[in-house]
Write a protein that binds this DNA or RNA. Structure first.
Lengths: 212, 212
DNA sequence: CCCGCCATCAGGATCGACCCTGAGACCTGC
DNA sequence: GCAGGTCTCAGGGTCGATCCTGATGGCGGG
């Protein structure tokens, strides 16, 4: 049973190329060259996989995914792009693409990728997978081992966590069952030890280090 | 040139299995069964790839990655686990693993995976890749279209962005070249329109919607 | 031309954030 | 028992955040 595939790309030539190259392994059930038409036809024909170009007139591939998702259609999207810019990859992943390959891919590999996505798998060319993971980790490279954090007393760390979540001094005092003045003392100590000057910097500091 | 591989797993049997199954395709340059020994030996022998069990006495696979990273060693980690629980996968990725496969993998596939990771690629079994992407997207499903945000005037949105970044009123007034009192007016309007009560909630609100 | 929306700013008030000094209670180790 | 660290709290002060009322000038539409 060949997967039913829908093509979205604004270049007629590329659509034609894909259509002929994949004709043995998939059923191409439709094509579109811009966002609105793509959404409408995808909803109408419910393909198994949508091969989606990143750059499109009318909002880009992302708009197509969001448009289709808005109608509760569950279609697998495989992004197919000339670009391997991290922003593009990340953007499509966030929108919900289950795969991302560049147009330099060999026809046979593309057929495999389509089959994999149709089967519910996720497909990424290795280079792009690297980007995704990097963005996923997102921690600033050289950030680890905090002698400053080690200098904090247990109580101070506890207060730090609460303040970083946006708690007011009063909130914290209630939460810990102590006086507001006590909370002030702890916060002052924390800010001094970490060499920060206010709760916003503290919040940033904590989020960067994933102290929650 | 066979990749130099280091094994970390607390089960002698499993290490033995891997060692014999992979003996044709990789050089096993060392083994360890707990965190501290693993870190020390990895630093000493600088393997190309570390095959790392998720669950280990002494802190888990994550502790190994962090320990090695703390010494500025650049080693590729491939997590190898009986577990495919999303928390485990996510945790290892955050720590810096460049791949994650389960122990049900066939020996030949494992050899391929090791080679791929050694070459700088990223390897994931399809099931796990799905988890990673799901966590990566993370946005609450139904969050889009904000009639409240639409109600803001251009100037108000501009002020909102700056405030959400932690700017003080004075900072914003300098940045925009207007009086502090004007900034106050705009912020008040924003908070009222969005039904928030302070800059912390505003910051949360903006970050959730990725308005930066 | 007047009305409404927007952007600008002031005066005046309240409350929370943050700092500094100082102090009592408790615990641990020498 | 004393020194040192932690946790607790108070007094008193500065400054920023937030709100309310109210006022001015520009700009666009009926």
């Amino acid at each position: 049973m060949k997967p039913r595939v829908f093509l979205v790309d604004d270049h007629e030539l590329i659509r034609a190329g894909i259509r002929t190259e994949l004709s043995d392994t998939v059923d191409v059930v439709g094509e579109a060259d811009e966002v609105d038409a793509a959404i409408a036809m995808i909803l109408e024909r419910s393909p198994d996989v949508v091969l989606l170009d990143v750059h499109l007139p009318g909002g880009g591939g992302r708009a197509v995914i969001e448009g289709v998702r808005a109608h509760n259609e569950t279609v697998a999207f495989l992004a197919l792009s000339v670009s391997d810019a991290p922003e593009d990859v990340i953007s499509l992943i966030r929108a919900g693409a289950r795969g991302y390959v560049t147009k330099t891919i060999a026809a046979s590999d593309l057929a495999e990728a389509v089959a994999a996505v149709a089967a519910g798998d996720v497909v990424f060319s290795p280079r792009l997978a690297g980007f995704v993971l990097d963005a996923f980790r997102d921690l600033p490279a050289g950030t680890s081992a905090d002698p400053e954090f080690e200098a904090l007393t247990p109580r101070e760390r506890q207060v730090l966590r609460l303040i970083a979540r946006g708690f007011s001094y009063r909130d914290v005092s209630v939460e810990l069952g102590v006086a507001v003045k006590t909370v002030e003392s702890h916060v002052s100590a924390v800010l001094r030890k970490l060499q920060l000057s206010n709760r916003h910097e503290l919040s940033h500091w904590a989020h960067e280090r994933r102290i929650l």
